[in-house]
Simulated scan of single mutants.
Amino acid sequence: MNRISYITLLLIGQPGPPHVSSPRSGAVARETMRIGLMWKVQAQFAGYALAVEEVAGLELCARSPTASPLEDLLAGRVEFATVSPAQLLGAGRRAREVAFIALFMTRSPVVLVGSKSRKGERLSDLTSARVGVWPGEDLEVRAMLATAGVSLEQVDFVPVEEGFDEFIAGELDLLQATTYNELPALSSRVPDQSDLVVHRPASSGVDVAKDGLVASIKLFGERPHLVDAVVGAAVRGWRRAIEDGEAAVDAVCRLESSLSVSEQQQQLAEIVKLIDPSRSLGRPDRAEFERAARVFAAIGQEVDANEAVIEPGPRERALDA
């Protein structure tokens, strides 16, 4: 399945995302509530998988091949969606239709993988390159190149799918990847791991927060108790995922039985590294939107950090649960 841009135009009348979970025991809410995921069910969303077992009627929806989670939320196909601060800002004025209600990953998992033998070890030495990216989700990649002094006009950004065969075949000079998914798989496939060079956003000062949770403004007015229930369960789920990885992976694999337990354990270990233990788990922060706006500025795009609606207010008791 292709990774589809988070800021493509909404396709009216398209089918909703597939439901990949069913209600569990431990009832808190009785109505069906769906969380649209950035990708398929995997350990990346372990905290939400545990929340499903607490909140009756809560479902996780794998990403649709034709729309982003934010688009599905705006179209009413899901009640919640996993969205990053940068992705929300990239939506412009449409961002005002939703509220950012929880943030878990305060560090970016995105990396840019290159081959030393093809383009060297330093981005600053590049004069041109073919870079495989996920359109609409490649902010950190573009920012790393820009801050290294590379003219983005000299870069051929090539949309890629989930795999990395084009990079291995030498058709791409650099490839966007995540620390928890593509990078481990790629490292196991290349003939010479020592030839790989991994560029990280934090090293270039362009790290941004990732997975957060959003809901529609309308939902707040109509069913605030359900918002509280889902946010509280998500916070407790992520706390448990951090403390008990085995239980978290078991919950993920109960929802998607085809997954490898060992691979999901490795993925969760990388996911936990993206969660800052010094911060209040789940609490949204305006500073993360300001940080994302600065990274947009690094690639010559202006966004307004104040476009995003951050709603911890009535959710305070849920976040402190």
Rank of each mutant, 00 (worst) to 15 (best):
A241V: 06
A247Q: 12
L213F: 11
W238Q: 09
G245D: 13
R236K: 15
V227P: 01
G237P: 01
G245L: 11
K218T: 08
I217L: 13
G245I: 08
D244W: 10
V235L: 11
A215I: 03
D228C: 07
S216P: 00
V231H: 07
R239L: 06
A248Q: 06
L219G: 01
P224T: 11
V227T: 05
V235N: 03
A215H: 01
A241H: 02
E222M: 08
A247G: 10
H225G: 00
A233G: 11
E243C: 11
R236D: 09
A248P: 02
G237K: 01
E243N: 14
E222A: 12
A234W: 00
A241N: 06
A241Y: 05
F220M: 11
D244A: 14
G237I: 01
R239T: 05
A234L: 12
I242S: 11
A241M: 09
R239H: 10
V231R: 03
R239M: 07
E222N: 09
V227D: 06
P224A: 12
V214K: 01
V231W: 04
S216M: 01
E222P: 00
A241R: 00
P224S: 14
G232W: 02
K218H: 07
I217H: 00
D244P: 10
A229E: 12
V214M: 04
W238A: 06
R236Q: 13
G221I: 01
V230D: 01
A241L: 09
L219P: 03
A233N: 08
E246T: 14
A241K: 02
L226G: 13
A233W: 07
E246H: 15
A248W: 05
A229N: 09
E246V: 14
A233V: 10
A247C: 10
R223V: 03
E246S: 15
H225F: 09
D244S: 15
G232M: 06
W238M: 14
R240M: 13
G221Y: 07
L213P: 05
K218G: 07
G237N: 02
V214W: 02
G232Y: 04
F220R: 09
I242W: 04
L219V: 02
A215S: 12
L226T: 09
D244M: 13
R240K: 15
L213C: 06
I217S: 08
V227G: 05
H225Q: 13
P224H: 13
V235D: 05
F220N: 05
I217M: 14
